[in-house]
Amino acid sequence: MFTAIRTLFQVFLHGFRRRYTVQYPEQRRYLPPRWRGRIILSRDKKGNERCVACYLCAAACPVGCIALGATQDEHGRRYPEFFRINFSRCIFCGYCEEACPTYAIQLTPDYEMSEYQRPGMVYEKEDLLIDGEGKYKDYDFYQVAAVSIKDKGKGQGLNERPPVDVRGLLP
């Protein structure tokens, strides 16, 4: 009998506690930048796609929901011809972001991706690409990769010596 009254009292007391319910969607919770939500592909400062189509994200993906195809432009810059993420399979584990050597693929604090049709959950490259750098600023893979691309020849990257003159006689 006493315990029943105590329980009723405690339930009654909860009526005066601070409310945690958020009036979504009018009200939104703060999500930190490292929150693992909708995946995007970023661009570097110059506006070039950061993705170099190395397939590491696809290999790291435990559910195999990333498919891409690599190709290269006439200057030898690699980029994905297509890049597809099947979000109806994605478990938002963030392994792709960890595997990415160029900070191209990033998870964002956005989770509002419901669809009435499952095919709508399949995002292609144009759905994934954003205009900015995302979370990771000032990184340009091609500046440290020592391969030449348009506007950057051999020896013009960071921490590189000028190309060796193989016909030179000086030591």
Binding site: G64, R84, N86
Partner: peptide, 12 residues
């Protein structure tokens, strides 16, 4: 890799 996304553009 990509076995659940390979053909996702045609069928899910």
């Amino acid at each position: 890799s990509g076995r659940t996304a390979e053909t996702a553009d045609q069928t899910v």
